[in-house]
Amino acid sequence: MDSPYRRELEVALRVVEQAARLSQAVLPDTDKGAVEKENNLGPVTIGDFAIQALLTSSLHSAFPDDLFVGEEDASALRSDPVLCERVWTTLQRTVGTSSSGCVLPASPSDMCDSIDRCQNAPGTDRVWVFDPIDGTKTFLRREMYAINVALLVDGQQTISVVACPLLSPDPVEDDQNEKDAVITNDSIDPTGRGSLLFAVKGHGAYVRPLFEGKGLGVAVDAAPRRLSPATASQPLRPVTCFFLQESALDDVHRGVAEQLGVAFPGSDLLGWVPRWASLAMGRANTTVWVYRRRDRHAKIWDHAGAMLLFAETGGIVTDVDGKPIDLLAGRILNKNFGFVAAPTAESHATVLKAVHDVLRAQGKLDLLGDN
């Protein structure tokens, strides 16, 4: 790919490949060292900590003037020496630096400092954004998860690298039954290859196998496949997450699906990054997410970069108000409310109208903002 960001893409691909190896090494463990975050924000595992340390240490070594934003902090490791040692040992035994181009932290203390280097807020200039494991709850169940890395330049998605170690990289053929395209949390690639997706703004989105097969050998020589743009003639196929009542409104999502005449819940995936990957790969082509309250907002690491994959296939992404997603808002995307994504401008307008119609019909006028 010939772009001004070729080196950044090459470095990010190498590091994410190794991060995926690390995640697969941890995946079979019954005890993944999971601890609950404060404020009921879900679990974090030794895989999350180790991958964020690996990503930050390696990319900081390559691009020392860049800033970093990541989901995790090292407070649990600093207060629990046993957990810290488990994360440190995991890094040492699973990541080979001689051929991978990765740079490991120099010590457990340096590892914690690397994790905490990601506590910035996004701003102008160059900022890397990480979600070390998106879908930690499903990762604990050995189900679908993803690793998300994005480079933002002046708040614009510029590079996306996403690893989905359990998702098949194979295309869905046009004559395949639509049901075969549906991805769920337990859709595990039987070949063990997984998917590595990447994009540079203005240069398209691509996918290739992540591993050579049912081992952890990285498929570095696999040829990437450019992801095809959606067309207006394709029927809408949703991806969502059903029955997350503490977060979003299933009855609204169901109502939108009924108005559009599409399956519900369609592809059912917990993690947002696998949802964006499935949209880019054509395994689904539309998503709607309406939070329960206007003061609920998305987190940048669940979306930055991963959205670029879909955008580079021609997909349109806005919030429920029809506004572009503002990635300069901060770690929490408080300038936007929810998401509406569809494959073309025409289909996006149709889906957005359905969302507004259903909110009005269900008496949820407080969620409509200024519409």
Rank of each mutant, 00 (worst) to 15 (best):
Ser75Asp: 12
Ala62Ser: 15
Leu67Gly: 05
Ser57Met: 02
Phe130His: 07
Gln119Pro: 00
Val82Cys: 03
Ala62Pro: 06
Arg117Ile: 02
Pro108Glu: 11
Glu85Val: 01
Ile115Cys: 03
Glu71Val: 02
Gly42Asn: 09
Thr97Lys: 07
Asp80Glu: 00
Pro122Phe: 00
Ala50Met: 09
Pro132Ile: 03
Gln52Lys: 11
Leu104Ser: 08
Arg126His: 12
Ser100Val: 11
Ile51Phe: 04
Asp110Lys: 10
Thr97Glu: 13
Ser98His: 08
Arg78Trp: 03
His60Ile: 00
Ser109Ala: 11
Pro64Glu: 00
Thr124Ser: 11
Met111Asn: 09
Thr124Asn: 13
Pro43Tyr: 01
Gly96Cys: 12
Phe63Leu: 14
Ala106Tyr: 00
Ser98Cys: 05
Pro108Gln: 09
Arg78Ser: 15
Leu83Lys: 01
Pro64Leu: 02
Leu77Lys: 06
Trp128Pro: 00
Thr45Ala: 09
Val44Met: 14
Ile115Glu: 00
Ser114Ile: 00
Glu85Gly: 10
Leu83Ser: 01
Asp65Cys: 01
His60Asn: 08
Pro64Val: 02
Ser100Tyr: 10
Val44Ala: 09
Asp48Val: 13
Leu104Asp: 06
Asp131Arg: 08
Val127Phe: 05
Leu83Asp: 03
Ser99His: 10
Val87Asp: 06
Val69Asp: 06
Pro108Phe: 07
Thr124Gln: 10
Ser114His: 11
Thr97Trp: 09
Ser98Gln: 15
Phe63Ile: 15
Cys118Leu: 13
Gln119Glu: 02
Asp131Val: 08
Ser57Tyr: 00
Thr124Pro: 14
Ser109Glu: 10
Asp113His: 13
Thr90Val: 06
Ala76Asp: 01
Val44Lys: 08
Gly70Met: 04
Phe63Thr: 14
Gln52Gly: 06
Cys102Asp: 00
Cys84Gln: 10
Ala53Trp: 12
Leu77Phe: 04
Ala74His: 05
Arg93Gln: 12
Thr90Arg: 11
Ser79Pro: 04
Leu77Cys: 03
Thr89Asn: 13
Leu54Ser: 12
Val87Tyr: 03
Ser79Asn: 14
Pro64Met: 02
Gly47Gln: 08
Asp80Gly: 09
Met111Lys: 09
Val129Asn: 07
Asp116Leu: 02
Thr56His: 06
Val95Gln: 10
Met111Glu: 06
Ser75Glu: 12
Glu71Arg: 06
Ala106Asn: 07
Pro105Val: 05
Ser109Phe: 08
Ile115Ala: 05
Phe68Lys: 03
Val103Ile: 12
Phe68Gln: 05
Thr90Gln: 10
Ala121Arg: 15
Thr56Asn: 12
Pro105Gln: 03
Phe130Asp: 06
Asp80Thr: 09
Val69Phe: 01
Gly47His: 08
Gly70Ile: 04
Ser58Gln: 11
Ser98Asn: 08
Cys102Glu: 00
Val129Asp: 04
Pro108Arg: 06
Pro122Glu: 05
Leu41Val: 02
Val95Arg: 15
Ser100Phe: 10
Gly96Arg: 14
His60Pro: 01
Leu83Ala: 02
Ser75Cys: 03
Ser107Ile: 08
Phe49Val: 11
Pro105Trp: 00
Asp48Arg: 15
Asp113Trp: 11
Arg78Glu: 15
Ser98Gly: 03
Gly70Lys: 08
Gly42Ser: 10
Asp80Lys: 13
Ser107Thr: 11
Ala74Ile: 04
Thr97Arg: 06
Leu55Val: 03
Glu72Phe: 03
Ser57Lys: 01
Ile133Thr: 07
Cys118His: 13
